[in-house]
Design a protein around this nucleic acid. Structure first.
Lengths: 108, 108
DNA sequence: CAATCGTATAAGTGATTGCTTATATATTCG
DNA sequence: CGAATATATAAGCAATCACTTATACGATTG
């Protein structure tokens, strides 16, 4: 898989509001089981499950099985394609986001 | 339009590889007419035109008419929803992207 | 004005998407 | 084992998407 394809995957995955809400909830909770995500979600359990699969396939979340429960947590490196892409073109929007490139390089 | 909707728009717009290629080409060229973008593109002139419209609607590019030609250039602020979103959750992927939030705030 | 060039819009189409309900696959408990 | 719980998959469907060809609009040129 090329890096462009990885970036496409990350962007597509985060572009859906419902799925992004799931992702943000996982971020806030730190670690949360699928059941917890279904509760308080507007959509059905299968819908949540499908979103979790998409997030996992995009490398944005990782899972940990504990008995019947599967706990999801964020995989920060999944955002690398996005951060790297922004950093690669940083010089072009430097007026607003000065020093972003330098900082991204430092954090490698 | 809420900020979440703006973010969704930016993500959706950049998620398509063909459209993102158009955007990246505009970045590299600085300013370029639609004709130039059609040349060297895999898709037809109307397809390019539709992508340009999507990019403009998302606030990612601006245009300048000059006679029959319309020159497109990047609108760096169009990326703000994306950068802001990343910055908002920075603490959660701090291990990789330390200080991003602080820097983004400074650049306001 | 008429022809031409640059760009946008219209209309149609196959593919993809996100959801649903129904069902299947674990895993635990009694 | 059998019932219950947690999660995933299957199948189907309406909506959206990215593209095409055909056509329209706008500006320049002769």
């Amino acid at each position: 898989m090329t890096s462009a394809m990885q970036l496409t995957n990350v962007l597509k995955t985060l572009a859906d509001p419902t799925r992004r809400a799931v992702f943000e909830r996982i971020i806030r909770e730190g670690e949360i089981a699928a059941t917890g995500l279904v509760q308080g979600s507007k959509v059905s359990q299968p819908a949540v499950s499908q979103h979790l699969r998409a997030l996992r396939d995009a490398g944005l979340v990782a899972e940990r099985r504990e008995g019947r429960h599967i706990h999801y947590r964020v995989a920060p490196k999944g955002l690398s394609p996005l951060i790297d892409w922004l950093g690669h073109y940083e010089t072009f929007w430097a007026e607003r986001f000065a020093n972003l490139e330098r900082l991204l390089k430092e954090s490698e």
